[in-house]
Design a protein around this nucleic acid. Structure first.
Ligand SMILES: [Zn+2]
Ligand SMILES: [Zn+2]
Ligand SMILES: [Zn+2]
Ligand SMILES: [Zn+2]
Lengths: 144, 144
DNA sequence: CTAGAAAATGAAAACGATTTTCAGAAGCTA
DNA sequence: TAGCTTCTGAAAATCGTTTTCATTTTCTAG
């Protein structure tokens, strides 16, 4: 479903209100491919909309996560990041520890093996995180 | 190698000093099977050694990680946890979101697939994290 | 259209885990 | 033992995140 529609439905279902700030933040958030931290999105927004406060950006990102159009991520640098969710797809991440590049990947065989590991321990998986940290091709080459 | 020996070698190599606190913390840390947070280890130590300060526990755990006898973990509850490292073995974790139970597992096939994913993207893996969150058998049963 | 209730905003303060500071204590070398 | 270095513990600082609160905005009902 269209994320904007999904957000609007969530807002009216919960008795929340439509505001300019939320629309601006949503558009900027969706327009990007990035895995934004609150800080980064706040700084980007500030270029064009200097009146929008940090707290509003933060609360709005949390709201996006709540209504399912954003996913929270944590790549171990002490910052929570958010990325737009498109449909039901799932992916995991390669994270370059040198330049910060993030590559997304899907590997159904790994997902299956996770289920079998869980089954072995009578464990019911609700969600998981898989991140591979290391050097991207460019950084590995520069390293030589 | 014996972790105590490994620690002592690291300490002398770096020109650090042997102290009672470090030995006490090391013994308590190694004696446990748990994935301790600084806070938890501090509280446990305080029962028997009320003079040891929080900062010392924290600095000492960081030192353990630095010299390779402890691994830092983060299971998304906002606390960094430490566990003893035994040899070269590697494992990943099942984490119960209800009771906090942590189960360790090794799945060589997943590890292999990770390498193949990385290769596909010309990516060199330095380390990775894989955590499966959900309900352990007991909590799933209690849920019914 | 209002008016009034409810929710949202932005600045600043509070929070919680982690890290640093600093003065005194302890360890090590000669 | 002297003297230099590191370590310790308490307290303060830091950093990302979250909350507070006075004010503004949205929205509904009259
Ligand atoms: Zn996955
Ligand atoms: Zn992603
Ligand atoms: Zn693994
Ligand atoms: Zn473990």
């Amino acid at each position: 479903m269209d994320p904007i529609k999904q957000f609007n439905e969530y807002v009216s279902r919960k008795g929340l209100k439509n505001t300019n700030q939320r629309m601006i933040i949503l558009e900027t958030f969706l327009a990007s491919e990035s895995h934004f931290s609150t800080e980064e999105l706040y700084l980007k927004l500030r270029e064009e909309y200097p009146k929008i406060g940090y707290a509003t950006v933060h609360r709005t990102l949390k709201l996006f996560a709540e209504c399912g159009i954003a996913a929270e991520r944590n790549f171990g640098d002490g910052q929570t990041r958010f990325e737009p969710v498109h449909g039901e797809e799932h992916h995991d991440h390669l994270v370059c520890t040198s330049c910060g590049l993030i590559i997304e990947f899907e590997e159904p065989q790994i997902e299956k093996l996770q289920e079998s590991v869980a089954a072995t321990h009578q464990f019911t998986i609700e969600n998981h995180r898989l991140e591979l940290y290391g050097l991207c091709a460019a950084c590995a080459a520069a390293d030589q």
